[in-house]
């Protein structure tokens, strides 16, 4: 499949809008996780605005593609995408983390239209995605399942239990992303508890592995298309990313994992984006 420059440009400008929402939402909430939301922004934008077959008017449509944000702390990203896609009014975005909001601190499928799975406790999303992919196989349905994990999240043992399951049941309708931004709360992943070499680990678990630059729309889309052609094996796309991507003063700064920007900083961030 050839991907037009127009498509790439559209997705890039959509991702900028999403990044602006993320910064504004977290500032308004006074807490949240900007770093990991910004690093996954291009991937999730590409999925919802080009790849996935979903219907905002019918969020529970049984044939829809599924998405699981296993790194649930990037919730602001997913909420911004769902609102831009039309699952709920954009005004809701500024209620993030507030009492009574449909936008909980971490994704709650019972509260937010368009959310396919409740996540937030790291390590649990891939298992749920496996369940969805198994259900598709069982019902002979053609929908695909996408899941985004963090690289630090790979330290959770359940991820590797699930990685075995995906390969054992030959879930070729499952595509996983690892947002490889290299940072976790306590510091660089190599220093805290290295999950590397991520590619070799997944290969050893029986997965098809694709390496990309997680901020290059063309590479994201091509990898997703390639994954669709792989039979009998799940695919993991290891996406090299920059934590805080798009906001220069947040980029590669571990301190911006879970901190809200001030009004001054919001201004600066929005200008940069």
């Amino acid at each position: 499949m050839s991907i037009s420059c127009e498509t790439i440009n559209e997705l890039n400008s959509k991702a900028r809008i999403i990044r602006r929402h993320i910064v504004e939402m977290i500032a308004e909430a006074g807490s949240g996780h900007p770093g990991g939301s910004l690093s996954s922004a291009d991937i999730v934008t590409a999925l919802y605005f080009h790849v996935m077959n979903v219907d905002p008017q019918n969020p529970h449509w049984p044939e829809r593609d599924r998405f699981v944000l296993s790194k649930g702390h990037a919730a602001p990203l997913l909420y911004a995408v769902l609102a831009e896609k039309g699952f709920f009014p954009k005004e809701e975005l500024l209620t993030l983390r507030k009492t009574g909001s449909m936008l909980q601190g971490h994704p709650d499928m019972k509260s937010t239209p368009g959310l396919d799975m409740t996540t937030g406790s790291l390590g649990q999303g891939l298992s749920a995605a496996n369940g969805m992919a198994l259900a598709a196989k069982l019902d002979n349905k053609s929908y695909r399942v996408y899941v985004v994990m963090g690289d630090g999240e790979l330290e959770e043992g359940q991820i590797w239990e699930a990685a075995m399951t995906s390969a054992h049941y030959k879930l070729d309708n499952l595509t996983a992303f690892v947002d490889n931004n290299g940072l976790q709360i306590d510091g660089p992943i190599q220093k805290v508890m290295s999950p590397e070499n991520i590619q070799e680990k997944f290969k050893a678990f029986g997965w098809n592995v694709i390496d990309i630059d997680g901020h290059d729309m063309k590479q994201i889309l091509e990898a997703v298309e390639e994954a669709k052609t792989v039979k009998s094996r799940p695919t993991v796309i290891v996406a090299k990313t920059v934590k805080g991507k798009g906001v220069p003063f947040m980029e590669n700064q571990v301190g911006w994992h879970g901190k809200a920007p001030s009004l001054e900083q919001v201004k600066e961030a929005l200008q940069s984006i």
């Binding site: 649990q124 891939l126 298992s127 969805m132 239990e161 399951t165």
Partner: peptide
């Protein structure tokens, strides 16, 4: 065809069951 052995992995067992349930199983 409706039985899935998840192996000795109880956390994955519960998570996989949850995913199946979201799809009406």
């Amino acid at each position: 065809e409706r039985f899935f052995n998840i192996g000795i992995a109880e956390q994955d067992l519960m998570g996989t069951a949850a995913g199946l349930a979201t799809c009406g199983k």
